[in-house]
Design a binder for these strands. Structure first.
Length: 472
RNA sequence: GCCCCCUUCGUCUAGUGGUUAGGACGCAAGAUUUUCAUUCUUGAAACAGGAGUUCGAUUCUCCUAGGGGGUGCCA
């Protein structure tokens, strides 16, 4: 039996879990799931100045919302420092690293000269002894090979070869003795037994350097898969205005985690022509071969469509749970035209069957249900007001009011029959009846089906709202 | 500057040395509908450009262009 696969998601906690990170996490998770392996989480907080506990919290919450549960507790890279230092010293002893000191100016000078000469910058001082006065300010640099080349056998990008003379002697230990990211990833991935490193392709060049470290240490290489980055809708690097928002922002906008997973999975990965990929199928189908090499653009319209699909397909209970979570989450406030406090979830639940299929997002669904929770007298929008001012409207409203008063069983079918009969008996087109009724009951010309509106409001409320608009 | 990667409808993508280059979103038109939305039908819409290999290239190779990434005592 082959060794079980272990993947990891390793974000640096300098901000929320943005969409690119979420997808990287998803791919790692899906691959582990599909292979019956493990998915680990490592917080790369070696940069103490930029890492925050708020960010860690946001990442954890985002992954939780997306349903990407890691196996075991998260590993905090900062807690592995001692181990990183041990490895750095090992490298020093084996002659694969050296102490060095150079001022910022000197380093800048080296880079400027290299650029001028049209070559890659390389730190030239690996064989120079350090003056005593700089001993305690020195860093540990990796002694990277100069001859030959390094090839990454990437599972997504194919074989990528970089000449070793392009790769500089990177810093392993800073002058304050703390390990850098380059050292830490290698050590942690090795120590955690990671078999597949799936990460953004902004790490591709770094990967060559990391491979050199693995080789110096005589450690086995994990498999690498560098996935292309996600771009904004204009093809430029994803930024806030494109939707580089935190996962929790997507929750606030009314997206379902499963829809998010489906959309993100299809962004850069495919399984033939399949578009609707529920999570169980994702786990069944996910593979590294299906990952595309080109960067993909983030497209909200498609996300909306997928989300609408899942809202329609989910059960009332599932949608209700999502709604509860949305409304009760006090980390953010959903953008609503009315206060979320007014929402009566029990009533909303009864309306879900006809509300679900019309909404692309949970927010849209709540907005469509606004008529349920508005208080009388309703605020009429201009068009609704106009519909009420039409010739003969108050007569019609009075008429149906009387009919509604005496309707025996308040159910949708009876309401429909009642209105159709009324139209027929009074020789009216239905188009004469529905618009003013809709206005009176919802304050708007746009609403769910009129029978559903009437039924869901209940007799008392319907009579009251009609009364409100009939001139005395 | 130097190094690396990428390029099929507007977008996400399928696909093959010979296909009417397929699907989805979006868009347009039509049908259904009391409104909006849904749903259904139909339609427009792509192999970045140039060489080469080949009987034949969207597919293989090279070049160019465009985009992206790296080049940190950031991750």
């Amino acid at each position: 039996m082959s060794q079980p696969i272990i993947t990891r998601f390793a974000p640096s906690p300098t901000g929320y879990l943005h969409i690119g990170g979420a997808r990287t996490a998803l791919f790692n998770w899906a691959f582990a799931q599909s292979q019956g392996g493990k998915f680990l989480l490592r917080i790369e907080d070696t940069d103490k100045a930029r890492s925050t506990t708020e960010a860690i919290d946001a990442i954890l919450k985002g992954m939780d919302w997306l349903g990407l549960e890691a196996d075991g507790e998260p590993v905090y890279q900062s807690k592995q420092q001692d181990r990183h230092i041990v490895v750095a010293n090992q490298l020093l002893e084996s002659g694969h690293a050296y102490l060095s000191y150079a001022s910022d100016e000197e380093i800048e000078d080296i880079r400027a000269k290299a650029r001028e000469a049209g070559v890659a910058a390389r730190y030239p001082g690996r064989d120079e002894p350090i003056a005593d006065e700089f001993k305690d300010q020195s860093v540990v640099r990796f002694k990277a090979p100069i001859e030959g080349e390094t090839t990454i056998n990437d599972l997504v990008q194919g074989d990528v070869t970089i000449r070793n003379d392009q790769l500089d002697d990177l810093v392993l230990l800073r002058s304050d003795g703390t390990p850098t990211y380059m050292l830490a990833v290698v050590v942690d991935d090795h120590d955690m037994g990671i078999t597949h490193v799936i990460r953004g392709d902004d790490h591709l060049t770094n990967c060559a350097k990391q491979i050199q470290i693995y080789e110096a240490l005589k450690w086995d290489l994990p498999h690498f898969a560098h996935i292309p980055l996600i771009h904004g809708s204009d093809g430029a690097k994803l930024s806030k205005r494109h939707g580089a928002l935190g996962a929790e922002a997507y929750k606030a906008m009314g997206y379902l985690p499963e829809a998010m997973r489906n959309y993100l999975a299809r962004l850069g990965w495919s399984h033939g022509d399949d578009e609707i990929i529920p999570t169980d199928k994702l786990i069944e189908w996910f593979d590294l071969d299906g990952i595309n090499k080109a960067p993909a653009r983030f497209d909200m319209a498609k996300l909306d469509h997928i989300n609408g699909h899942y809202i329609t397909e989910s059960s009332d209970d599932e949608v209700l749970e999502a709604l509860k979570s949305l409304i009760n989450d006090n980390e953010f406030t959903p953008e609503l035209s009315y206060s979320a406090d007014l929402i009566d979830l029990e009533r909303l639940k009864l309306c879900l069957p006809f509300l679900r299929e019309r909404a692309k997002t949970l927010i849209e669904l709540i907005e469509t249900a606004a008529y349920l929770f508005k208080s009388c007298p309703l605020d009429m929008d201009a068009k609704a007001q106009k519909a009420l001012e039409k010739e003969g409207v108050s007569e019609i409203l009075k008429g149906v009011h009387t009919q509604f008063t005496s309707l025996e069983d308040w159910n949708r079918d009876n309401i429909e029959t009642l209105l159709k009969d009324y139209a027929q008996n009074h020789d009216l087109k239905f188009g004469k009846i529905a618009p003013p009724l809709r206005s009176a009951l919802t304050g708007s010309m746009v609403s769910p089906g009129i029978y559903d509106v009437i039924h869901s409001l209940g007799r008392d409320e319907v009579l009251k709202r009609i009364n409100d608009v009939i001139p005395a």
